[in-house]
Deep mutational scan, measured.
Amino acid sequence: GIQEIVAMSPELDTYSITKRVKEVLTDNNLGQRLFGESILGLTQGSVSDLLSRPKPWHKLSLKGREPFVRMQLWLNDPHNVEKLRDMKK
């Protein structure tokens, strides 16, 4: 599951990941809330907090790293936007 992926993950640049996620969401007119609930399993508040103030990787616990790994996996998925759009319906 995701825990193994997080444990094996190389250090991620949390700042550039969140910046990229925000760009993709904005460009495709997708909400942070939808993204947070569907992709990260987080509430709106947690998501906007994460996206606006990402902590550096080395300061995060494994649990804290999980959303960033999920974001990275989502960014790597060529169908990420379509999938999210489908969830919106």
Rank of each mutant, 00 (worst) to 15 (best):
Ile5Ser: 12
Leu42Glu: 14
Val21Met: 03
Arg70Ile: 07
Leu12Pro: 04
Val69Phe: 05
Met87Gly: 11
Leu60Lys: 08
Asp27Val: 14
Asp49Thr: 09
Leu51Lys: 00
Arg20Thr: 07
Leu12Thr: 03
His58Glu: 08
Pro54Tyr: 00
Leu30Arg: 00
Ser46Thr: 10
Lys19Ala: 10
Phe35Arg: 01
Arg85Ser: 10
Leu34Ile: 09
Arg85Ala: 11
Leu84Gln: 04
Ile5Lys: 14
Leu60Ser: 02
Lys59Met: 15
Lys22Glu: 08
Ser48Asn: 09
Leu75His: 02
Met8Cys: 14
Gly1Pro: 07
Leu75Ala: 01
Leu42Gly: 05
Val81Asn: 02
Leu25Trp: 01
Gln72Cys: 07
Glu82Met: 06
Leu62Asp: 15
Asn28Glu: 06
Val47Cys: 10
Pro54Thr: 03
Asn29Ser: 07
Leu30Ile: 11
Gly45Trp: 08
Ser61Ile: 01
Ala7Phe: 05
Asp13Gly: 01
Lys19Ile: 09
Glu66Ser: 03
Gln44Met: 10
Met8Gly: 14
Ile5Tyr: 09
Pro67Phe: 03
Val6Gln: 09
Phe35Cys: 02
Gly36Tyr: 07
Tyr15Val: 13
Gly41Leu: 04
Arg85Lys: 13
Leu62Gly: 08
Gly45Leu: 09
Leu84Lys: 02
Ser61Asn: 12
Lys83Val: 09
Arg70Asn: 07
Trp57Asn: 01
Pro67Trp: 05
Leu62Ser: 11
Gln72Arg: 10
Gln3Ser: 15
Gln72Thr: 05
Leu34Arg: 07
Met87Arg: 11
Leu73Glu: 14
Arg20Ser: 06
Thr18Ala: 13
Pro10Ile: 06
Gln72His: 09
Leu84Gly: 01
Lys55Trp: 05
Lys55Arg: 09
Leu40Asp: 00
Pro56Ala: 12
Arg65Lys: 06
Leu25Lys: 02
Leu73Ile: 14
Pro78Thr: 10
Ser52His: 09
Met8Asp: 14
Val81Pro: 03
Met8Leu: 11
Glu11Pro: 13
Ser61His: 07
Glu37Ala: 08
Arg65Met: 00
Ser9Thr: 14
Lys19Ser: 10
Leu42Asp: 09
Leu34Tyr: 08
Met87Tyr: 13
Lys88Gln: 14
Lys22Trp: 05
Trp57His: 02
Asn29Glu: 10
Val24Pro: 00
Ala7Leu: 08
Lys59Asp: 12
Ser48Ala: 13
Gly36Trp: 03
Ser9Met: 06
Thr26Gly: 09
Lys22Tyr: 05
Thr43Ser: 14
Gly31Cys: 13
Glu23Pro: 01
Trp74Arg: 02
Lys22Asp: 04
Gly31Thr: 13
Val47Ser: 06
Gly1Glu: 15
Phe35Tyr: 03
Leu40Phe: 04
His58Trp: 10
Arg85Phe: 10
Trp74Glu: 01
Asp49Ala: 11
Arg20Val: 03
Ile17Gly: 02
Val69Tyr: 11
Val69Gly: 01
Leu25Asp: 03
Leu42Cys: 11
His58Gln: 15
Arg20Phe: 04
Glu11Asn: 07
Arg65His: 04
Arg65Pro: 02
Ile5Phe: 12
Asn76His: 12
Val81Ile: 11
Gly45Thr: 13
Asp13Trp: 03
Gly36Met: 09
Glu82Arg: 11
Phe68Gly: 03
Leu34Asn: 06
Met71Lys: 03
Leu75Asn: 02
Leu40Cys: 05
Lys63Asp: 09
Leu25Met: 02
Thr26Arg: 12
Leu75Ser: 01
Asp86Asn: 13
Ile5His: 13
Glu23Thr: 11
Val69Pro: 01
Phe35Thr: 01
Asp77Ser: 05
Val69Lys: 05
Asn29Met: 13
Ser9Ala: 10
Asn80Gln: 10
Leu51Arg: 02
Gly1Thr: 07
Pro67His: 13
Ser46Ile: 12
Asp86Lys: 13
Val6Glu: 09
Leu12His: 04
Lys88Glu: 12
Gly41Met: 07
Phe68Cys: 01
Met71Glu: 02
Leu25Gln: 00
Glu4Gln: 12
Ser38Asn: 15
Val81Glu: 00
Lys63Arg: 14
Gln3Tyr: 10
Asn80Arg: 12
Ser38Leu: 12
Lys89Trp: 06
Arg33Gly: 14
Val69Trp: 07
Gln72Asn: 15
Glu23Leu: 08
Leu51Gly: 01
Leu51Ser: 02
Asp13Asn: 11
Ile39Asn: 01
Asp77Arg: 03
Lys55Ile: 06
Phe68Ser: 00
Phe68Lys: 00
Lys63Ser: 11
Leu25Tyr: 02
Thr26Glu: 09
Lys89Ala: 10
Asp49Arg: 01
Lys88Pro: 07
His79Gly: 13
Met87Trp: 11
Val47Thr: 15
Trp74Gly: 01
His58Ala: 14
Ile2His: 06
Gly36Ala: 15
Lys83Cys: 07
Leu34Gln: 12
Ala7Glu: 13
Leu42His: 07
Val24Glu: 03
Lys55Gly: 07
Val24Phe: 03
Met71Val: 01
Leu25Gly: 01
Leu30Pro: 02
Pro78Phe: 05
Gly45His: 13
Pro56Arg: 05
Trp74Pro: 01
Leu50Asn: 02
Asp86Ile: 15
Gln72Phe: 10
Asn80Cys: 10
Lys22Val: 11
Ala7Cys: 07
Leu50Cys: 12
Val24Arg: 06
Asn28Met: 04
Phe68Met: 03
Pro67Asp: 10
Asn80Ile: 01
Met87Val: 13
Leu84His: 02
Val47Lys: 04
